[in-house]
Design a protein around this nucleic acid. Structure first.
Length: 676
RNA sequence: GCGCCCGUAGCUCAGCAGGAUAGAGCAUCGGUUUCCUAAACCGAAGGCCAGAGGUUCGAGUCCUCUCGGGCGUACCA
């Protein structure tokens, strides 16, 4: 079923073409700005008149004369400088609603696209060295919504969770695990926890900090010596056995611990920077270990290089640690995805490490084809049109002067994979706006290399930050990232309080269910309902409010309809039979007509949302629909309506419920509840 | 310095290809419950769309400049 806008666009464009003899006239149909002008308006005639240098009103008259919309609209009216105002016929409305009602596929009148595309969507992409935090929320849920919407429209969507599993942060966690091992031999509360807060506490006090760092370093050195004392080699004494045990039986809080360990190592490295402290480490030379002192702040980077040489059996402990971290972290991510109701699973994971064998080849090919060149020791691509501070060409660095590859390299390898292996027609990247320049350059480089033919579309879908009430990016009081799990738990907890208050008589199990749906729904809906390009202020109170454009309001509207259905059953009204038997509608009340017209516009909202990848077009539509339903609900009794009205009203209720459910649940991944 | 994004009601935000009198929600004030969930509905008030020029029959929307904010700008992701 075509959207009303599309039908009108077609008809009026055709009339415009007939009048002017030009093809490709745009009618520019929009919803009327005021109900008194009708339901839709055509704005295109004025622009056309301007081009043709004729009187717009006269042209509009000509167009209307050539226009055939009798089956859809009342006679069109010309108004103002040349608007064509269109009012839908009630019969047309009724027919369309009946058509939606009888759709066996239950698509609510939404057509699938004629030519489905292969769309790769790169989203979420958490770094597995850390737990997911609030910074991952937007990419994860906006990406999910994009996938769901495109899928609903009939495209083939390939989700790619490009997790961070190959960078320096992994070196930090591996080092962190070593600390965990060392701490275990001391007994008592692990030193890394106390030292982490100590380090944070004396961040401003240089002397104390220096003293503390020296102490940490000395203990580290002693531990290292102990670990290597017995057997010359590779941490055979303590770390290896510890790791093996950890892999066999990981403690339940290991994920939490990994986050702390990461923070600890990170904190040490920023604290000791420039202090000249060194510790022992080893390096492999022809399968023989060499021992040397390394600057403390570079230790984790050194470990990263060993990790990156993972296929060397001598680096088995790094490999084991890495695999363990990855497993634990992904379990955590999956738990979050499940809570968030995000359709992302292990099979969608294809992280940085998957491209590790291709990175050298990427650089090599770029060099061979003179697309990349060496500059200050680094291998760079200089795409046209990018300048640095001095106005010099800005490089996209694909290999650092120390030989390491960067995320630009990985992204290029990933693009090749997505084009060649996944056969993408469109690749969508859902990341925050700060990476705009990076992706512009990566896209440019990929095009230069000929890896992405012109007909393949590369899209960077950006979004703003989540801010706290202070207007700054949302952080905990101590300045850390807010863990997503904790944030979601709090949302559920707060929703629980409200359910408890509003509907204390429900069974406990039901209350828990509702609290989950409402709490998580509120967080997601609040995000979706904002324009994704702007920052937004996170507020539990606002997102959980019953009034306004919130998830609870939407869920409540749905629950009210379901309540009517339950009531109907108790009155022996068989809704299904009654709806299936509806052959004609009786739309008369303003609230009925208003709701009916709006139900037909779902497709417009989806199209707009999909075209610009903007979930807020969906929430706006759904909210307005729920408002129109609420007005209808208060003005038009359903079950007590006479036999000439009840089927019509039941149908309006049913289609509204289906639309809300489709929008919330299918497209936004927000659960609906039967009762609230 | 340069580039990108942003500045709309007291607050949080919409405004989709330039179109008719700029819209919601919160907060404020006032009304509605013998009737399907009042977690609701109806109404009032609230604005020189940051400022100044320009293009146009018409500008929140396009162009130029100014002011104010955010982000980015060679080896982090």
């Amino acid at each position: 079923m075509k959207t009303v806008i599309d039908i009108l666009e077609e008809r009026i464009s055709a009339a415009m073409a007939a009048v002017t003899g030009q093809s490709g006239c745009a009618a520019i149909i929009k919803p009327a700005t005021d109900p008194k002008f009708g339901d839709y308006q055509a704005n295109g005639v004025m622009a056309l008149a301007k081009k043709a240098k004729t009187n717009p009103r006269k042209l509009a008259e000509e167009v209307v004369k050539n226009l055939d919309v009798d089956d859809i609209c009342e006679p069109p009216e010309i108004a103002g400088p040349g608007f064509i105002n269109l009012r839908l016929k009630t019969d047309f409305l009724a027919d369309k609603l009946l058509e939606i009602n009888s759709d066996p596929e239950n698509r609510l009148g939404i057509e699938k696209v004629a030519q489905p595309k292969n769309v790769v969507v790169d989203f979420s992409g958490p770094n597995i060295a850390k737990q997911m935090h609030v910074g991952h929320l937007r990419s994860t849920i906006i990406g999910d919504c994009i996938c769901r919407t495109l899928e609903f429209l009939g495209h083939k969507v390939i989700r790619q969770n490009h997790i961070g599993d190959w960078g320096t942060s992994l070196g930090k966690v591996i080092l962190g695990l070593w600390h965990m091992c060392m701490a275990s031999k001391y007994g008592g509360p692990p030193y890394y926890k106390t030292e982490l807060s100590e380090l944070q506490a004396c961040a401003g006090d240089k002397d104390r900090l220096k003293e503390l760092c020296q102490r940490i370093r000395d203990r580290h050195e002693k531990d290292w010596q102990d670990d290597f004392a017995a057997v010359k080699g590779d941490a055979n004494e303590l770390f290896r056995p510890f790791l093996e045990k950890l892999v066999r039986t990981p403690p339940p809080d290991l994920c939490e611990e990994i986050t702390t360990l990461y923070q600890y190592v990170n904190q040490i490295e920023t604290s000791v920077a420039g202090m000249g402290l060194t510790v022992s480490t080893r390096k492999k030379d022809d399968h023989v270990f060499q021992y040397f002192q390394i600057e403390y702040e570079f230790l984790s980077r050194h470990i990263t290089t060993m990790l990156q040489d993972i296929d060397d059996p001598d680096n088995k402990q790094e490999k084991d640690a890495w695999e363990l971290i990855k497993k634990i972290s992904l379990e955590h991510c999956n738990e979050i995805y499940k809570i968030l109701n995000v359709a992302l699973s292990m099979k969608d994971v294809r992280g940085e490490s998957e491209y590790r064998d291709e990175l050298a080849g990427v650089v090599e090919e770029l060099l061979k084809r003179k697309i990349a060149e060496e500059s200050d020791g680094a291998i760079c691509v200089f795409p046209d049109g990018f300048k640095n501070k001095e106005g010099q060409p800005l490089p996209l660095i694909v290999q650092k002067s120390d030989g390491a590859f960067l995320y630009a390299t990985t992204d290029l390898a990933a693009i090749r994979y997505r084009v060649d292996k996944l056969k993408a027609d469109t690749i969508i990247y859902v990341t925050d706006a700060r990476q705009k320049l990076h992706f512009e350059m990566v896209f440019a480089a990929a095009r230069m290399a000929g890896w992405v033919p012109e007909n393949i579309e590369l899209v960077h879908v950006t979004f703003g930050s989540v801010l706290g009430e202070n207007g700054q990016p949302l952080k905990t009081r101590s300045g850390e990232n807010v863990k997503l799990k904790e944030l979601l738990d709090e949302a559920i907890e707060r929703a629980k309080t409200v359910v408890e208050e509003k509907n204390p008589d429900l069974p406990a199990e039901r209350k828990t269910e509702i609290a989950r749906a409402v709490g998580i729904g509120a967080v997601k809906y609040a995000d979706y309902s904002n324009n994704r390009t702007s920052d937004y202020t996170f507020s539990f109170d606002k997102m959980l409010a019953m009034d306004g454009n919130t998830a609870p309001y939407m869920q409540y509207a749905y629950a009210r309809i379901k309540s009517i259905e339950r009531k109907a059953q108790s009155r022996d009204v068989d809704i299904e039979t009654e709806l299936a038997g509806v052959k004609s509608l009786n739309l008369t009340e303003p609230a009925e007509l208003d709701l009916a017209k709006y139900l037909l516009r779902y497709g417009e909202a989806i199209e707009a949302a999909a075209a610009d990848y903007r979930p807020n077009y969906l929430t706006s539509y759904l909210y307005e629909l729920a408002q129109k339903f609420s007005a209808f609900y208060t003005n038009c009794p359903v079950l007590d309506a006479g036999p000439n009205k009840r089927p019509t009203r039941l149908l309006l209720c049913d289609l509204t419920a289906k639309t809300i459910k489709n929008g919330l649940s299918k497209l936004l991944g927000i659960e609906v509840v039967e009762q609230m």
